[in-house]
Nucleic acid binder design. Sequence first.
DNA 1: ATGGTTGAAAGTCAA
Length: 262
Amino acid sequence: MPFLIVSWNINSIRLREDLICRLMREFRPDIIGLQECKSPVENIPTEKFKKLGYRFILAAGQKSYNGVAILSKLRIQEVGRLDFANLEQARHVAGELENGVTIHNVYVPAGGDVPDRVQNLKFDQKLNYLTHMTTWFKRHKPKRTILLGDLNIAPREDDVWSHKSLLGVVSHTPIEVEHLENLRSSGDWCDVTRQHIPAGKLYSWWSYRAKDWRAADRGRRLDHIWATSDIAPSVQSSCIMKDVRGWTKPSDHAPVFAHFDL
DNA sequence: ATGGTTGAAAGTCAA
């Protein structure tokens, strides 16, 4: 069964409702994992999504911050909303498709500005969040599972516009990369985007602060789609839709796509 | 070295 799955940090699901509908119309993905919905679940607009065929909606929400959702054309049953480092923040929702594939949608804490876990509580929480996730997946030994979301780490030199300039910048520091690598090995995960595009600069996020984000092109690949090694070979393709970053009133993140054929 | 923008929501806080 072929299906197209997307991960997209939407930076407000209410403000971006029409942008999500445009993505649905233009690319017709089967499943969309959203992060930074910034809305309580009861205030998430669902009518237009359902009219476009996305009848199955799972969400974890809170006021103003964080928030994740899965919008799906395929029947999906919620299997958990985990609070990995006990932060009491809506950063995870998981569901299971009828073909037995489990999808974890995660919004890893950004971690603040100072890359020091003593000076900066938010950085400490980010690393703790990754450690708790790692422990959880080691215990649960996932199979036929997809992990996607804004992981807020760009692990490789070619995942950032300048490796040298960003070594001390939260999102690309060695300790974060090490934590992400520990998470990756926790479930025998395969980064399916890099499986399909093994080399070259690749970004999913460009700051709002640049005068011309496209010309400056100072991006980072913070958004990821992973699959366990049993289903990773069934990925036909993966890409980041950079043009979406240039749509009217965009999110600062572009959506990541993966095409599976299971 | 610094400041630049956006969003939620009404203060700033977070990214």
